[in-house]
Amino acid sequence: MRLAIAGDSGAYERCLRDMTAVLRVGVRRAVTRAGLAAGEAEDIVQEILLAVHLKRHTWDTTRPIGPWLQAVARHKTIDAIRRRGGRSGVPLDDVVETLPAPREEPTIRETELVRALDSLPPGERAAVTAIALDGASFAEAAVRLGTTEGALRVALHRGLARLARTAHERT
């Protein structure tokens, strides 16, 4: 994560993948304990990843990342479970599971995030969609959308921040 914050995108991707793997195990267990459908877990994992991304500047780089990730994951999981009407007060000491975890992604239905995408302003939605779903590079997407790379980067970042807020405000 230190390398990632310094701008190494390969390191960032590896870091996010490792986090995804450990989050899946812990969140699935928390979701089951809260009496919710197991399918909700991947939605919550995505919410946590988005929060990790948008709030990574609140991590003190001189300290280990583990407790920080744990704190973010707990916070988002408690919030998400409460919002979905799950049993609250479930002990959540281990949302971040350190056991080796399966890496495969569960096959899931349309996630909450896709629904949240629809509520974005068109420019931001186009930016997120082009990069996420079509897998385009900034340069390709900018040409296709008739905008500049810089504007696209701004739109993407704003879109992500808005997605996080939308996911959070939905009740």
């Binding site: 995108s9 960032y12 995804t20 988005l50 991304h53 500047h57 995030l113 996420a132 993407l156």
Partner: peptide, 22 residues
């Protein structure tokens, strides 16, 4: 959205990090 797609966007947006709160 698949989680892999989300990760792709997050990595793409990796260059945009906010300054520390302080």
């Amino acid at each position: 959205m698949k989680t892999d797609d989300l990760l792709r966007v997050l990595v793409a947006d990796g260059g945009t990090i906010e300054p520390p709160v302080a």
